[in-house]
Computed example of a mutant assay.
Amino acid sequence: MYVYILTNTTKTVLYIGVTNDLARRLYEHSQSRGDTGKFTGRYQTDLLVYFEACPDAMQAIAREKQLKGWTRSKKDALISAFNPSWNPIDLETLSD
């Protein structure tokens, strides 16, 4: 299971989610780009800037709730510690 954070190109919006298949979920987010009925589509948040693996669904959901309760500055610090330049993470290059 994964907890992940997406942002938009201007890095003004953060989206926090949970999934058991990060690549599939990122693809799904990219397909809803511009769909105003969905948060990630409305705010065009489809750039992965942070993720972490969790041992099981319960822990992933708990971590997601914890992160969602944080201030924006604390979330920014977490992302910056993991990905200092906030460059979009390409999962394909991680598996090489």
Rank of each mutant, 00 (worst) to 15 (best):
D76L: 14
G41N: 01
T93R: 13
L6D: 01
R72L: 07
L26I: 13
Y43N: 12
E28V: 09
S32N: 07
G34P: 13
I61S: 03
M58D: 12
Y2H: 11
L26T: 07
S95P: 10
A60C: 02
D21A: 09
M58S: 11
G37L: 06
Q59K: 13
E64F: 09
S30M: 11
R33K: 14
E28D: 14
S32D: 00
D46H: 09
D46Q: 08
I79Y: 01
K75T: 15
N83W: 09
A57M: 12
K74Y: 12
K11W: 00
R33C: 06
V3R: 00
K68C: 15
W70Y: 09
T71P: 10
Q44K: 13
G34K: 12
F82N: 01
D46L: 07
L78Y: 04
F82A: 03
T45K: 02
S30E: 12
T93G: 06
L26W: 08
G37D: 00
K11Q: 13
M58E: 14
Y15L: 11
L67S: 02
N8K: 12
T10Q: 13
A81F: 03
C54M: 13
C54N: 10
T71I: 07
M1E: 06
R42A: 10
Q66M: 11
F82G: 02
S95M: 13
K65L: 15
D21P: 00
Y4K: 03
I5L: 12
R33Q: 10
S80D: 04
Y27M: 11
A62Y: 07
A60F: 00
G17N: 06
I16D: 06
Y27K: 15
A62L: 11
A81H: 10
D90G: 03
K68R: 15
G41S: 07
G37I: 05
T71D: 15
L26G: 09
D96W: 09
Q31R: 15
D35F: 09
Y15G: 00
R25V: 12
T10C: 06
W70F: 10
K65T: 14
L22F: 02
P55K: 05
T10F: 06
L78H: 05
L6A: 04
E28N: 14
L78W: 03
N87R: 09
H29Q: 07
N87T: 01
V18F: 11
E92K: 04
T71Y: 14
L67T: 04
R42S: 04
R63W: 14
T12E: 10
S73C: 08
R72N: 03
N20W: 03
A62W: 04
Y50V: 06
I79Q: 03
G17K: 08
T12I: 04
D90H: 08
Y43R: 10
W86N: 01
T9C: 09
N20C: 06
I61H: 05
G41W: 02
A62S: 11
L26V: 10
I61D: 06
P55E: 09
